[in-house]
Each structure stands twice: as C-alpha cells, then as structure tokens.
C-alpha cells in the first residue's frame, strides 16, 4: 500500500482533466456533490451510488456507556450514525488492487 491521502483538490483535478471547465468551477462542482449527499443524509434519506456503495442513516437508541478510564457510567443519548456499505464492485476493485 502506498499510503497517500487524496483530498478535495485531487478530486477536482480529476474532474478538470475530464471536462473542459475551469479549475475553480470543478472545485465548486465537487463541493456541491458532497453538499447534496450531506443534505440528503441530514434529512435522514439514504444515498445509493450504483457500483460504488450506499450511505444509510441509522438511529441508535439511548444506552449506558462507561468511561473506560474511570469506569464511571455515563448515559449515551440517542443519536444518528452514518453507515457506508460498499458495493460488490467497489469491494472487488479494492481487493484486486491491493494484491489479494
């Protein structure tokens, strides 16, 4: 594994190479894709991107947790968590690429 980290700028650079738009506009488009996905998830909707994966929002109930350092019991409020389920295509591509 190479261990590099990509950021928004790498994604917008890839978009820039793909279409004939300015770098600035490509960056804005990447941002608006992330915004639209976030908006749907905040509204409690799931987001399914075929051949990539599905983001779903799960509601977790209240429970008692424990501070691992002090052993003290602390209540954990009900909350919503995001779960990403990769598609088979993504899983297969990741396995092929990483030599397994």
């Amino acid at each position: 594994m190479s261990g590099n980290t990509l950021t928004r700028s790498d994604l917008s650079e890839a978009v820039y190479r793909e279409v004939g738009l300015s770098r600035n506009e490509c960056a804005q488009l990447v941002e608006s894709i992330l915004d639209k996905i976030s908006e749907a998830l905040v509204n409690g909707d799931s987001v399914k991107i075929s051949s990539f994966g599905t983001f779903t929002v799960r509601a977790k109930g209240a429970r008692m947790g424990r501070n691992p350092k002090t052993g003290e019991e602390v209540p954990i409020d009900p909350r919503r968590v995001l779960v990403f389920r990769p598609s088979h295509i993504l899983k297969d591509r990741v396995n092929e690429g990483n030599g397994t």
Binding site: M1, S2, G3, N4, T5, L6, T7, R8, D10, L11, L34, L90, R93, V94, E96, G97, N98
Partner: peptide
C-alpha cells in the same frame, strides 16, 4: 485511490 491502498479525506 482505494484500490491503490490510498486514503481519501474529505
């Protein structure tokens, strides 16, 4: 990126 073993941090 993931198939190269890279991370994508947004």
């Amino acid at each position: 990126a993931l198939s190269r073993g890279d991370r994508v941090e947004l």
